[in-house]
Write a protein that binds this DNA or RNA. Sequence first.
DNA 1: ACAAAAGTGTTATCACTACACCCATGA
DNA 2: TCATGGGTGTAGTGATAACACTTTTGT
Lengths: 238, 238
Amino acid sequence: MTRSDNIVLALSPIDEDLKLAFTVDCVIFGYDNDDLKVLTIECNMDPFMGMISLLGDFITQDEDADSAAKRILKYCTGNEDIFLEEVKSFSKPDRHPFGRVITIAFYSLVPISLTKLTDSADKHLKWVSVDEITEMAFDHKEILDNCLYQLRKSLREKPIGFELLPKKFSLKQLQTLYEVVLGIELDKRNFRRKLRSLNILIDLEERQQEVSHRPAKLYKFDEHSFEKKSSDGLKFEI
Amino acid sequence: MTRSDNIVLALSPIDEDLKLAFTVDCVIFGYDNDDLKVLTIECNMDPFMGMISLLGDFITQDEDADSAAKRILKYCTGNEDIFLEEVKSFSKPDRHPFGRVITIAFYSLVPISLTKLTDSADKHLKWVSVDEITEMAFDHKEILDNCLYQLRKSLREKPIGFELLPKKFSLKQLQTLYEVVLGIELDKRNFRRKLRSLNILIDLEERQQEVSHRPAKLYKFDEHSFEKKSSDGLKFEI
DNA sequence: ACAAAAGTGTTATCACTACACCCATGA
DNA sequence: TCATGGGTGTAGTGATAACACTTTTGT
C-alpha cells in the first residue's frame, strides 16, 4: 500500500492519455468531547500542497463505489462495519489538477473514542473540528459542506446519531450530540419524552462511574426494535 | 448527433482498452391524464435488445454530470429549464456489457401535455406508465426504483409537484397528482387547508373553461414567495 | 453542606384527522 | 332537472413547546 497525494491507495489505473478517473471521497465524521470533527490528510499535490483534504481513492476495476468507500474506512480504522451514506457526485471538468477526475462523495460516522487509526494511516491523518475548517484542497470544502448538510438532514430523519457515540451513552450525551451537530438548543424534558415515546432505547440498568455528581443512567440503541418499528412506518423526527 | 444504444449522443470517448466510461442516466418523469409516466427508449444492445431503457449519455470532457443531464433533457424536449435532482451513482463492475460504466442517476419532472418531444428524439422515445414497468435494460429498473423513491420523498418535503403540472392548475389537479405519485388518498378539505396555510399559491382569479360541471379556480405556484418563506425556515410537508 | 449535573410533569398551543352538505355549471 | 365535480367548517385528538424544582452523587 502506497500513499499518493490525497489518495490513500494507488491501485487503480488512471488512463494516461485521457487522464480520466473515478474516485470516491469520504467525509469521515467523528465525535469527541462534544465536538464534531472530520478526518483529514495533508495534501502533497500542487497547487494544494500542505492543505488538508478528505480521504479518497480510485475505484478499482472490481469494486463499486460503496466498496471503495468501505475500503477507505477499513484502511483508516481497521473496521468494516461503519455507517456510510452516499451524498452526491462532483464532476466539474477542472476540479482536479490531475485531469478528469469524477468523484462520488460519502460521509460516514464514527465515535472517535472507539476509533483507533491503523498504524499505516495514523501518521498522516488528523481529526479537525468542523468549525475550524475554512478551506481544503481541491473542492473538498464544498464536498464537506454538502456532506454536513446531508448529515444534519439525516440526523433528524433517521436514528443515526448513535453511530457517533459509544455503545453505552447517557441521554445527556445524546442530546448534546444533537445540539452540537445541528447547532440548535433542545429542551431537556421534551427531548427525553420524545425518545421515550420512540421506544428505541434499551435501559442498561447501569450508571456512569466516577463522576462527581449524580451519575446518569446508560442506554443503548435498540436497533432491532427500530427496524421493526421502521417497517411498521415509524416516523423518526427530532 | 448520432444515437448509439440507449445512449442519445455519442460524443464522449470511451477508453477502448479499459472500457472505462462515465455516464448519466435520466429518469424523466412525466404526468398526464392522472398517470405518472417515464420517458423510455428501446434498447438496441445485446443482451437487452428490445427492452426499454432510460435516457442516458456519456459525460463529455468539458461538462459536469449536471450539464450532461440537462443536455439530454434539452435533446429530448428542446427545453433547458427543467427540474432536475441527482439521486445516486450506480457502479457495480458488471452493470454494463460494454465495460466499466459508472453512471450517475438523475430524475427530472415535466408536464407531458406541455412537452413536445423534439423531432430527432420523437421516433425513438416512448412514455410508459410507471406502474406498467416490470423490467428494463441494464440495471435501469433499479435506477428507476431509486429515483421514484426519491421523487416521493422530495414531493413531501419540497414544493416540486408543480413541475409536473401545467402553469395553471386547479387544487383538485394538484391533489390528484399527490395521490397518484404517492399512492395514498388525501382528504380534500385538509389538503386545501394545508395549501392555504403554506401561502405559496397565487389565485389567478380564473376558472376552468368548458367543463360540464362547476369550473374550478386556477392557481399558479408562487415561486418567489416560496423562496422567501423557505429561507425564513418554512417547513413544507405534505 | 455545597457544587454539579440528573431527572421529572403540567399546561397551553398548534397541527392533524375525520367527516357531510351545498354550489355552479353543462347537458 | 339531473349529473358532475367544486368548494367549504367544526370538533376531537395528538404532538410540540415552554417552563422550575427535587434528587443523587463526590468533594
